[in-house]
Structure formats: C-alpha cells, structure tokens
Amino acid sequence: MAFADRVDSVLRAGEAPNLHGLVVVENGQITLERYGAGEDFKLNEPLGHVTFGPDTLHDVRSVTKSVVSLLYGIALAEKLVAPPEESLLAQFPEYPDLAEDPQRARLTVEHALTMTLGLEWDESVPYTSTANSEIAMEYAPDRHRFVLERPVVEEPGLRRTYCGGATALIGRLVAKGSGRSLTEFARSALFEPLGIGEFEWGRGGDGVEMAAAGLRLTPRDLAAIGTLLLDGGRGIVPRSWIEELWRPRVQIDDRSAYSYHWYVGTGEHPGLSAHGNGGQVLHLAPERGLVVAMTAGNYDNFAQSTSATVLDAVLQGA
C-alpha cells in the first residue's frame, strides 16, 4: 500500500485527531497534501474553529527553535556571532556580575545550542502556567538575564534539559550580531531566498520575538525548509552547518539524540527532525529524499500521538 493510502486509512479511522495539515515532499515534489479543520490557537490566544488550507498560517511552536538554529548557522558563516566553543557569558557583557560566577563562566554557546546548560529549568507543566520556566521567562523584566541567572544544578554539558531559555539566548546572539530583529534577519537571510513571503513571529511584552515558540508558517513553507536542508542548503544555509546538525551530541533515549536544536533519529526511522507542542513536526528522511511537514492541534496533550501515527504511516516500510 502506498503511503498516501496508509495515511488516508489512518484519517478515515479517526486515528489522527486534530491533524490540521500534512505536506509530504518526495524528491523535491509534493506527493501528498491533506488539510483538516478544528479549534486552533495562536500560542494561548483562541482562534476559534479554523478550516485549514495551503495558505493558512499555523503555530509551529518549538519547531521555531530549530529555525533559530538555522539562523545562527547562517549568522555564524557571516561571522556575525561567536562560534559554539566561545564563552556564553562573554556574549552578554551587560551582566558582569553573572560572568564573575566561576560556575557560570564555564558555559559556552554550545551548551545553549545543545540545551546542556546545567541550570534549573522546568517545562514539564502546561504552557499556560508561570510554573513553566518558559512562561515565567516571558513575564520576566529581562528574559535573557532570567535564563542566565537560574540556579546552577549540575555540570554544564552533562545532560540535556529541555529549555526554551537556551533558544532565547541563541536568538539574542543572532539579533545582536546582525543588528536586526529575528524577524528581519529571518526574512532576508532565510525566508525570502526560500520564496517564503508570509509568516508571523510572535513577540513578548518586551517586543522581542519569542525565539522558543513564536513562529507561524504554512505546512508547505515548513516543508520547503526541510527540502532546503536535504538539498544541501542551496547556499542559503551553509552545508557545513547542516552537517553539524546531523551530528548526535546528547543521547535522549535509545531512538534519538539531540544536536544543535534538532533531533537526530537513531531508531526505527532515522532522520533529522524538529518537533513542536501540539503535534507540529518537520521530519527529513534523506535515504528516500522525503520531507514530512505536519501541523496539528493537540496542544499540551502529550499523550496524543497524532503526529507519530501519521509519520509512521508515511514512513512504514522505509
């Protein structure tokens, strides 16, 4: 059975609730596209019942983190940002008191890229509560200081702790180095060269883009980003940076590892992927020239496996 038939069978059986959009690209061509309808949100703002289509922007939530990594890679090639091995606190001279702490002084940019900062951080509660560290960061008077002054709980580089604050720091490096907002840099350096015209990037109360989860893209444009990576970056994203993304740096479980804000699959479905709350997925399977982009509405429902079910249907037998 072709993967289109498998996906349609899953959808007819109601096994993929709240699937909003699916685009599959095979060898550079869209070979499957499906859209649904349902309740949607822009972060925590209700949008009501939405009928989705090719031009409907959708929250990609934490897939935003992976896009920020691409922007960092572009900025790095242009020598606008410090390389991964450089001191992290040295990039924030506005916080000299934090840099004087010998424990924090050991932090590098790479520790932020791999989320191995060793700082206290908890995103295990819903993203509607300030008990969630990412939400608390959004309410802080200075989001970057909020992250960097978290209590030190372990050696940096020891283990990955999921941390939207780490992405906020990387986003700040890109904005400072380029002299432009993330929106402006993303538009000129990545989106426009890729043919992406319409997108949105939500901002916090301080006017700064939410680097951890603020992007809204169409599934087609999300797929275009994946296709760009499979094509070696086309001079937009440096090929050398894409190669770095494929290097597993921190093991998550027996099926996946974490790289520079991207997941490296080492299990049944090897590949490079980005994930966001609610079922947002961008998955690259280079051995088949395949890119899968999904949007869904299972926000804060971590038990709902819509994206996994659909992805399995696409990749089955690969």
Rank of each mutant, 00 (worst) to 15 (best):
K42I: 04
T64M: 05
L57H: 08
Y263T: 13
L57K: 07
R255A: 10
V291Y: 08
W121C: 06
S273R: 12
G265Q: 12
S87E: 08
A285H: 13
E154T: 11
D300W: 04
F191D: 09
W121R: 04
I135C: 09
A37I: 13
N18R: 15
L245V: 07
Y299A: 05
F199M: 06
R61G: 08
A4N: 04
T64Q: 00
R106L: 13
E78M: 06
H275V: 07
N18V: 08
V152N: 07
D142P: 07
A37K: 15
A82K: 14
S62R: 04
G202Q: 08
G265Y: 11
V208R: 13
A168Y: 06
E200T: 08
G38I: 01
R288S: 12
K79T: 13
L217Y: 00
P151H: 04
E198F: 06
V81H: 14
L71A: 11
D312A: 13
L148M: 10
A4L: 14
E15P: 07
V314K: 02
T309E: 11
A296V: 09
F41Q: 05
A296Q: 07
V310K: 00
V281N: 01
V7F: 14
R172K: 12
L19V: 03
Y35G: 12
Y35F: 14
E155A: 13
V67E: 03
G233D: 04
V25L: 15
Q91E: 13
A296N: 07
E192I: 03
F41R: 04
S256C: 06
A105I: 12
V208Y: 01
T108G: 03
V264G: 02
E123V: 01
V281K: 02
T309N: 13
S178M: 01
G38T: 09
A175S: 15
F92D: 00
L70V: 03
R34A: 10
N18F: 11
E184D: 12
H275C: 00
A257C: 15
G48N: 00
E33F: 10
I225H: 01
A105E: 15
T116I: 04
A293D: 00
V125D: 08
L148S: 02
P193M: 06
H20Y: 02
H261G: 03
A224S: 15
E15N: 11
T161N: 03
L80C: 09
F302P: 09
D55I: 06
G235D: 12
L47K: 07
L19Q: 02
